[in-house]
Design a protein around this nucleic acid. Structure first.
Lengths: 342, 342
DNA sequence: CTGTTAGCGCTTTCAA
DNA sequence: TTGAAAGCGCTAACAG
């Protein structure tokens, strides 16, 4: 009987069937599939033919149960729809794809209870490793999982934990942004803050203060307006600042999204950017180069952060050595900043 | 021996161990866990105690292999980092979460070969159902999977396939956008197109043409500039239009991203929006309400599209009836459009 | 209501 | 190099 490919049989052939058709044992098929041992030329061909004929693809679930490995990496993000996380997730995705791991994304929504629950779900699904993007989950909850699984943290220092952590120098980035404004002659530089309990946001405030201090400018609480990394509160921040009659010629917003909000609020009040007020953000979201005017901001290499996280967790899973290279933050000067007018 | 909770034993307890400690059979534990049959009060308590003591969580992999269900839905998207897909993915995520399914996201990157490969991967991972967001994959490839699995299509009509499909009336949306411009007195309305082979993009062109025709305005090829749904080509489109010396007082861009690019190109040339030229987009991305000026656009309920897709696939998986409710597109008038100046 | 008995489809010793 | 056999941890009849 000629082995003509049966195109309708691609339903759910099993390894056992492949073995039977190829006239070999299941172990041989498994060995061929995984390259876990040499298989003779003759049997290799027979197996290949059977696989083609049945249009066979291994059942990953069964494979996972038997081997104890799922070839899956859990990625605990906060909000899959946030422009910042997106770039990073794409980096993770690409890094994992290179090693044939699949990402399993879950969102914690900045809620530690939900994060803990999601982490537990990843564990129940027996992921081989985890990438944790930001979040406020307690160290103990992470620790419980970290004992069994490689975990890479992103954007969070782990005081009590000893886990590889990929961070960006937020303080330095904020310092550069503020210093840029100061060098343009601005002395009254307002700051739109991020969430008070967010580590990155805190560091950005510190960088802002450092730059002021260095220039001999006294830090004034009245020039900082609270926001939470979103556009809406960025707008509010400007309204507040304006209402308080604080005077300023430049604004450093703790992230691009709040800078967008600020920019719109300024537009509504008829205040021009950069002619009347200079504005700088932080993150360099994809959209920032298409704002009007294009936003001067601090580039945070989100894609690279994600890529490095994904790559590192794979190295850990496979027992390979890894090295965390420091990621650079850099100021990207565009058109939302200009010298102070005298 | 008192049953004191052993906090360090939360590693990988098995159902069998729970059963032994509780003094019941594994089936009883399984039944308790799945609620698949009544369990007596006494045993229920014993099982609960054992579970608490061991800090047990079922191994999803084993459960999947035994039951043939993974409680996972594959989501084939094109680009996890695109602002449009994001909103939709969040909708899918939320809908699945309601039914305790986890999404497994994979990206096809608008490449039909890659899509087919990803789809096959989802199948190998034995997802219980699939949501396909757009894409150019061939009907046959989809069909091969659809025979075994519930599939819900999003944003794509399936001519040869009979699958539930969630679409939005792109033609109508484009018609509304163009008509809005015409009602403002604009007669020379340029169109920035999307990718030629993209169904939604084609429909948006048709809607634009329909509105012109209805108003007795003749369609001019010279007023359409090709772009591909991205900001960069949106900019290019404006340069082209300007260079060709075509005259127009309004622009309808096939999506918000290309509208952003157009807006920036206009800014560079010193052409004001909306004073000199009115601009309308399509999608209503989250950012569009924070542009300067806020963009008039056609709201496409991306979140709802995703939610409905997720919800529908779950209904299909569970053999429940489902009904696809038409999703409304609506014009959102903001500040990038104004009456034609005479 | 409960326990016993077979597997789910694959990997992995262990011998040959 | 190859095959046989024993699971991976859970579910799902089938008796009782």
């Amino acid at each position: 009987m000629p082995a003509m490919p049966d195109l309708t049989a691609n339903d759910t052939a099993t390894l056992g069937e492949v073995a039977r058709i190829a006239g070999v044992s299941p172990s041989t098929v498994s060995r061929y599939l995984n390259g876990s041992a040499r298989v003779s030329e003759a049997r290799r061909q027979a197996v290949e033919a059977a696989i083609a004929q049945l249009n066979y693809r291994p059942n990953m679930v069964a494979r996972s149960l038997a081997s104890g490995r799922t070839s899956t990496v859990g990625v605990l993000t906060q909000d899959i729809a946030s422009p910042f996380f997106n770039e990073a997730l794409r980096g993770v995705e690409d890094a994992l794809a290179e090693s044939r791991y699949a990402p399993l994304f879950v969102s914690g929504h900045w809620n530690s209870a939900e994060e803990a629950e999601r982490l537990s779900l990843l564990s129940a699904r027996r992921v081989d490793g985890v990438v944790m993007m930001h979040g406020h989950i307690r160290d103990e909850d992470v620790q419980a999982v970290a004992r069994r699984l490689p975990i890479v943290m992103v954007g969070r220092a782990t005081a009590t934990l000893d886990l590889p952590s990929i961070t960006v120098d937020n303080r330095l980035g904020a310092y550069k942004a503020t210093r840029h404004l100061i060098e343009l002659g601005h002395e009254d530089v307002a700051f739109i803050s991020g969430p008070q309990d967010h580590h990155d946001a805190q560091q950005r405030l510190v960088g802002y203060q450092d730059a002021l201090r260095e220039a001999g400018i006294v830090f004034r609480e009245s020039l900082v307006a609270k926001a939470d990394f979103h556009e809406a509160t960025g707008m509010l921040a400007i309204h507040q600042l304006l209402e308080s009659r604080a005077s300023f010629t430049a604004i450093f917003a703790a992230n691009d999204q709040s800078a967008y909000g600020a920019r719109l609020a300024l537009y509504r009040r008829g205040i021009r950017v950069p002619e009347d007020v200079s504005l700088v953000g932080f993150d360099d979201l994809p959209y920032s180069s298409y704002c009007v005017p294009p936003l001067t901001t601090v580039r945070q290499p989100a894609y690279e952060v994600g890529w490095q996280a994904g790559h590192t967790v794979v190295q850990m899973i496979e027992g390979q050595p890894y090295a965390l290279e420091p990621l650079r933050v850099e100021l990207v000067v565009r058109e939302s900043t200009s010298p102070r007018r005298r």
